[in-house]
Design a binder for these strands. Sequence first.
DNA 1: TGCCGCTTTGGCACTCAGTGTCAATGAGGC
DNA 2: GCCTCATTGACACTGAGTGCCAAAGCGGCA
Lengths: 212, 212
Amino acid sequence: MSLWSRTRNTVYREITRTAMELFLERGFDATTIDDIAAAAGISRRSFFRYFGTKEDVVLGDLIASGDLVREALEARPGDEEIWEALRNALHSVKDTAFDEPTMMKIIKMVNETPSLRARSIEKHLQWQALLTPEVRRRLGADPADPSDVRADALVATVITCLDVAADAWTRCGGEVSLETLFDAAAAAVRAPADVDIADRPRTAPSRTASPG
Amino acid sequence: MSLWSRTRNTVYREITRTAMELFLERGFDATTIDDIAAAAGISRRSFFRYFGTKEDVVLGDLIASGDLVREALEARPGDEEIWEALRNALHSVKDTAFDEPTMMKIIKMVNETPSLRARSIEKHLQWQALLTPEVRRRLGADPADPSDVRADALVATVITCLDVAADAWTRCGGEVSLETLFDAAAAAVRAPADVDIADRPRTAPSRTASPG
DNA sequence: TGCCGCTTTGGCACTCAGTGTCAATGAGGC
DNA sequence: GCCTCATTGACACTGAGTGCCAAAGCGGCA
């Protein structure tokens, strides 16, 4: 049993590695599952025993960490401001499977490939479902009241800010850190955005025009 | 030419009507394109001349209105607070193709069908791309600065709030209006949610802790 | 060592979405 | 009536994903 699952994990990682190489080399859509199976030395049928969909090869490893985020959130101090708790829970889960340049290429690929992008956001919706109960609890919301949208809105927005930040991160070639971009996004959402935000210059690489 | 496009529109609507009936009757996934084509009296190949994907039958009509929202946003007074402008732009675009109970069934179906939900989100990403330039302009942001995420974050969040509101709307059976739910979602995001919203001034949000 | 039960695997055939091609049809302009 | 052009339907194809079944591999057991 132990050997079996170890073998399974090995194969799983081998498929991921091989497929990722192909994806980054010739593009996601241009890589068929037959290509992946052939390169990984398995049958087409076996591929689908490890991954439900082609997208899962990319996204399974990249953001399968929904449960980790939930655990991290539950571990945050109970009196922590909710935005802060969510922010810290997200940041505590770092993906270490790839180095930063590779990670950037992957995110870029995800953002530029419609089917990948859609699945990626679907995964984030699953995160939402995982995180919302804890946020509801912290807000003292009635778990059965569907009209109390506060928790859903907060969680969805925080994840949206993360997406926006990740997208901007790749667009500026990693010059500004993900954390900084996330905080800027969060600040823009929470503050009236047409007013200058006091300490946005934590990075201040390029001045944005400040009218009036 | 006029006759051609009139015919085209008629066929388009006929396919939509027929397909929607099938979808709501037996489910989205359980309805094949052959079913739709047969029921609409066209060939399978012709279906794809009217709709790029099966999802577009549902979502094309439901939220093809990205340009309308953009126009509505551009028509808002220039000094209107940005959240307000976005909110009003969204609310000015009402979908009148279906009555409310049907609309609710459709939204429910979209939210419960992964492929539909994914496409729906993709459409919303297209909205974002349409709306962001105008928001950037209003914020006086440098259009070429990818590290200025304010506009992206705002637009993405507003649309996220709309999604959350629509979801809650179906879950509480339409008892609470979509507008009310949207406003509640927006308020939860903008105010520290565990504090009374009333005492929060429009400026000076609570500063998030600076780790540095 | 050989046998039994389990899981994994590969191969095959299938459904379904979506695309390219091509010949037939049918409307509009001359 | 003829020419042009868009629409249509039919056919064939790729590619994702699933169901099924027989073969192979591993563990335990005698």
